[in-house]
Every structure is written in structure tokens, then in C-alpha cells.
Simulated assay, not measured.
Amino acid sequence: MSDTELDRWADAPSPCVDVCKYKRQGRCVGCAMTKEEKQSFPQHGSGAAKKEFIEALMARLAESTRNPAFWVMAYQRKCAMEGVACPIGAEGE
């Protein structure tokens, strides 16, 4: 992974997309995280730690009955609103 890519991941905001409604097994309907996972997201962690966290979340979304593309679009919008480069491309990677 290049330094530029790691920097993009290091600047990544939380995967929370500000829906915050917990229904499915205690998981948010917006981002599929539990309250504990939202609190444990490495706010100031390394790019590699954030990348691992978000990739695990995307894998969970892909395994569920939900389409991860909806979360990706919401997350890209969040990154744009926060003025940071989104580490996730249009295809979800």
C-alpha cells in the first residue's frame, strides 16, 4: 500500500453515517455497527487500522441481506461533507 493510500485511510472518518437506529441484533441500520464498535473505531489510529476496521464492516454488510453499495454512497457523501478524500471508491474498494 502506498503512502498516499495510507494517508487517505488515516484521514478516514468513522464509518457511522449518522442514522443511529439500532435494530438488527443491536446493529445500526445505517452502518451495521454496534454502539461498542462505533466507540472503538480508531479515531486517531493508523491508516492500516482504519482500513482493516472498515473492510471488516464492508464484509459484514456483504454477508448480510443488505446491499453495501448504499452504505458506500452514504459514506462517500460523509467524507465529502467533512472535506476529506474518501478511501473507498465508487465500486466499494
Rank of each mutant, 00 (worst) to 15 (best):
M1P: 05
M1S: 13
D3R: 00
T4M: 11
L6D: 12
D7E: 14
D7H: 09
R8D: 08
R8C: 11
R8H: 08
A10D: 07
D11N: 14
A12S: 11
P13C: 11
P13E: 08
P13A: 05
D18G: 03
C20H: 04
K21F: 13
K23N: 13
R24Y: 15
R24W: 14
Q25C: 13
G26S: 02
G26A: 01
G30V: 03
A32Q: 15
M33S: 02
T34Q: 02
T34A: 01
T34K: 01
K35V: 10
K38W: 13
K38Q: 14
Q39C: 03
S40N: 07
F41K: 07
P42S: 08
P42K: 01
Q43T: 12
H44Y: 08
G45N: 06
G45H: 10
G45K: 01
S46L: 08
S46T: 15
S46K: 13
G47T: 04
A48D: 11
A49P: 07
K50Q: 09
K51T: 02
K51D: 11
E52V: 11
F53E: 02
I54C: 10
I54Q: 08
A56K: 11
L57F: 02
L61W: 15
A62G: 13
T65P: 05
T65A: 10
R66I: 14
N67Y: 15
N67T: 14
P68I: 03
A69V: 12
W71L: 04
M73K: 14
A74C: 05
R77I: 04
C79S: 01
A80G: 11
A80R: 10
E82I: 09
G83K: 09
V84Q: 04
P87W: 06
I88D: 02
I88S: 01
E91D: 15
E93V: 11
